[in-house]
């Protein structure tokens, strides 16, 4: 197991290295001059020239890439061109914002997805089964940016039940410690703030969680169906064990392995894929952060930002693989 983990971690190195090459070549193929964007139209040509020099943008690409790798190897993610802040510090609140949103979205997706999947499987071909699978089908086909807009229109603009944008009321900022506002608001003992944070999370959480929910529901259902058909469940039924007991104690445990894969995969994907939800709900997350960096040609931020997300993504995949062992002792790692 330990060997396996180490081997997997080592295999990450060429992948990450390859990613730096791809990202580096793509972003330097992007036309446009960062000095122009950063300094604005009214800046003089000489000051733009000076900035380019300072950023070493006048050097050959290979030299720039070498410098970047050297710094990266030393654990330095670089400095943002635009803000002159170290990226490792700057990116933290954005990552936290996305993480919080993703966790909420996944919690929503797992809770409704798994339960709907189980019940559908248990009551196969009932109206509940049909209805929830129809919803799941529509869910996987949903353009989430449209769903987000519709939610915003209905629940924020028309009904005014929930806030339409942002993480928190700007008037009453949360004292940030972890940058996860749900936790921070509780840390400062502000139940009212916690409630406001929750309200801000609902709409984007649902928008981001809908597709994983639908996928998880479908996966859980089919995987449950397979397990329910198996002999030992029939035996359990024959023994007269209660339905709930059979489902949650026996069947789910075995049906959960493929579901777990999906959950892990989806979680990783949401982290980087939240840019649309973040755009619609003005959520200051990492997807938006990188998107803005692309627009302003903030090369170091694009590079390191994408790398960090990808790194988290592969780590989660690794984690899921390792979790298999915990859930299913039959899997062993050679």
């Amino acid at each position: 197991m330990l060997n396996y983990t180490i081997r997997r971690l080592l295999m990450l190195i060429p992948v990450l290295l390859g990613m730096t090459i791809i990202v580096f070549s793509i972003i330097h193929a992007i036309p446009g001059d960062p000095a122009e964007v950063i300094l604005g139209e009214k800046a003089s040509n000489s000051s733009k020239e000076a900035l380019r020099k300072e950023l070493k943008l006048d050097q050959p690409l290979l030299v720039q890439y070498g410098d970047y790798l050297k710094k990266l190897a030393a654990g330095d993610l670089g400095t943002s061109i635009r803000t002159r802040e170290p990226i490792s510090a700057e990116i933290t609140p954005y990552l936290a914002a996305t993480l919080e949103l993703t966790l909420v979205a996944m919690a929503f997706a797992v809770f409704f997805g798994v339960n709907a999947g189980i019940l559908s499987a248990w009551k196969q071909n009932s109206w509940f089964d049909y209805l929830s699978m129809l919803i799941a089908l529509i869910g996987v086909s949903m353009p989430i940016f449209w769903l987000g807009l519709m939610e915003q229109w209905l629940f924020a603009l028309e009904l005014k039940w929930l806030p339409s944008i942002g993480r928190m009321n700007a008037r009453d900022p949360v004292e940030s410690v972890t940058n996860l506002y749900l936790i921070d608001s509780l840390l400062s003992g502000r139940a009212d703030q916690f409630w406001t944070v929750v309200k801000h999370l609902i709409l984007p959480g649902i928008a981001l969680g809908t597709i994983p929910m639908a996928i998880i529901a479908r996966m859980t259902r089919s995987s449950m169906l397979e397990v329910l058909r198996s002999d030992y469940i029939r035996t359990a039924k024959a023994k007269g064990l209660s339905q709930m007991f059979i489902i949650y104690k026996h069947a789910l445990r075995n049906a959960f392995i493929p579901v777990l894969t999906v959950i892990g995969l989806q979680f990783g994907l949401l982290l980087g894929g939240a840019v649309l939800t973040e755009t619609i709900f003005a959520w200051p997350g990492v997807g938006r952060y990188i998107f803005d960096a692309i627009a302003s040609r903030d090369y170091p931020v694009i590079q390191s930002g994408i790398l960090i997300i990808a790194f988290i993504f592969v780590l989660i995949n690794l984690l899921v693989d390792l979790l298999y062992a915990a859930v299913d002792p039959r899997i062993n790692f050679k």
Binding site: A156, K160, P163, S164, I165, G166, N169, A170, A282
Partner: peptide, 21 residues
């Protein structure tokens, strides 16, 4: 005084209508 960045014009206007800014 708090200078808040809200990139989207309509989102900003919604925030104003909601009394957030």
């Amino acid at each position: 005084v708090v200078f808040k960045v809200i990139p989207d014009n309509s989102a900003r206007f919604t925030a104003l209508q909601n009394g957030e800014i």
